[in-house]
Design a protein around this nucleic acid. Structure first.
Length: 450
RNA sequence: GCCCAGGUAGUGUAGUGGCCUAUCAUGAUUGCCUGUCACGCAAUCGACUCGGAUUCGAAUUCCGACCUGGGCGCCA
């Protein structure tokens, strides 16, 4: 047994390890005595005989105070040479002082410029001057240095953790399904074609068919959090060509059961974020953060249409899709998260199970935030003959669905599931005006870089 | 794809035919300043998306292209 390696056992030329040896800024207190910190130069204020540098790492900001007559030549040269957003390491004694932000400041014995930032910067990290989203996304690595922006992604991470935790604890198996697929087994959304050796292939629009195959595989409860790709040429604040989808599929469950799971998941996720991310929520400036109350209304589609009729000018009738304006009108009436249930079979996909007593409506649902749709799902038709019949009813050719249909011939349990848009979940949770704010490197019709 | 609004220093903006050698803020450079915290002061630097047209004269009007934002459509 060799001893556990330590930092000091590393070769002396392993400079990179020394960089790790610094105190996170939030942990620097007057009680620290002296500290070695590393981070980005947030601002420099030179008052003549006295200069202040604000140093920022992901944990916070600290003031470094430089009394010019009392510090070394090396420190003076570094203060003069450094630019905003450069990476520096600073070490020296920590002093308690009321005048300094956070009640403490660091007086440097040494300042090392690890990486000098070019000037001028593509955007103002200190937020004195705003920047448009397009400018921010072009320099996303600088944009995310702004604590208010980083907070969004810390919350997104916490939300994903909560979702994984909830589903894992509920007995779900996490799966990963292929994103490169041979063909669409349905019409509908446009797919991105890709070059796959000498074959035609596409980026997958949804893990749906694979989730269902896992029901035939006997896994009973599966989930996946992963990317989906849609080649639609839409340009809106809530659509992306690459999105993150949270998908579940459950055997021996109906649509009502998976709706309960979804509702509980949303409440759990909000609750976890509220509990663990209060600083980030405050930082972003969300004032009305509230965990949704249990018992999301189950609004039948027919009633939703009636509400929409009263709320909007454009004509809308039973059998129409719900337009964005109708979505907003219904959302305003409902005031919180809600489900739309009992959709006309005609406007839902072939795989949705129809009601026994009224085949004109089906066991599909959407879960809505007052601003927009977050999730859609259904109890699936698991009976082979019915499924083939429904494919034909949609005017589609069952022959081209063989890949999808095969598992249904060898013992497919009844099952239901849904897909939930992770990006929209974060967007609506934090009241962001554009879904791109909730995505580090969004992909839309016009943006492929960075 | 359609409709609307836009495109002015690194960033965010003002400027609707001559008063523009283009405003303000921030920034960058240089100098002064010992308690700043959007530090202050002084000087300097830095821009009209591209192409065509109208006009004595275009940042400003018109046409086209490209790009951006918003709305719609599309989004099993």
């Amino acid at each position: 047994m060799s001893p556990e390696p330590t930092i000091t056992s590393l070769p002396p030329d392993a400079h990179c390890y020394r960089i790790l040896m610094r105190t996170p800024i939030a942990q620097v207190t007057p009680a620290s005595g002296s500290a070695e910190i590393a981070g980005w130069v947030h601002e420099v204020r030179d008052l003549g005989g006295l200069a202040f540098m604000l140093i920022r790492d992901r944990t916070g900001i600290i003031q470094v105070t430089i009394p010019k007559k009392k510090v070394s030549e090396q420190v003076l040269a570094a203060v003069k040479a450094v630019s905003r957003e450069s990476v520096v390491r600073v070490s020296g004694p920590v002093k308690a002082i009321d005048k300094a932000p956070g009640g403490r400041e660091l007086v440097p014995e040494s300042i090392e410029i690890i990486s000098l930032a070019e000037t001028p910067l593509p955007l103002d990290v200190s937020e004195k001057v705003p920047a448009e989203l397009d400018t921010r996304l072009d320099a996303r690595f600088l944009d995310v240095r702004r604590p208010r922006v980083a907070a969004v992604f810390e919350i997104r991470s916490a939300a994903c953790y909560a979702i994984n935790q909830f589903l894992h604890d509920a007995g779900f198996t996490a799966i990963t399904t292929p994103k490169i697929v041979a063909a669409a087994t349905e019409g509908g959304t446009e797919l991105f074609p890709i070059a796959y050796f000498d074959k035609e292939a596409f980026l997958n629009q949804s893990p749906q068919l694979y989730k269902q195959m896992m029901m035939a595989a006997g896994c009973e409860k599966v989930y996946e959090i992963g990317p989906i790709f849609r080649a639609e040429e839409h340009a809106t604040t809530k659509h992306l060509n690459e999105a993150t989808s949270i998908d579940i599929e459950v055997s021996f469950a109906d649509h009502l059961e998976v709706m309960r799971i979804l509702e509980n998941l949303i409440i759990h996720t909000y609750g976890y974020v509220e509990k663990t991310c209060s600083a980030q929520i405050a930082n972003i400036g969300v004032e009305d953060f509230a965990v949704p109350k249990a018992g999301f209304p189950r609004l039948p589609y027919a009633e939703a249409i009636e509400i929409a009729k009263k709320g909007i000018e454009e004509p809308i009738k039973y059998g129409d899709d719900i337009s964005p304006a109708a979505e907003r009108a219904i959302g305003a009436e409902m005031g919180g998260h809600y489900f739309i249930v009992d959709w006309p079979s005609e406007i839902r996909p072939y795989y949705a199970m129809q009601h026994e007593n009224d085949p004109s409506i089906c066991k599909a649902f959407d879960m809505m935030h007052p601003r927009m749709e977050l999730s859609s799902g259904a109890q699936r038709e698991h009976r082979y003959d019915r499924l083939v019949q429904q494919i034909k009813q949609k005017g589609l050719n069952p022959g081209s669905f063989e890949f999808y249909l095969k598992p249904f011939r060898y013992g497919m349990p009844p099952h239901a599931g849904w897909g939930l848009g992770a990006d929209r979940l974060v967007m609506t949770m934090l009241g962001l005006s554009n879904v791109r704010e909730a995505v580090l490197f969004p992909r839309d019709m016009h943006r492929l870089v960075p």
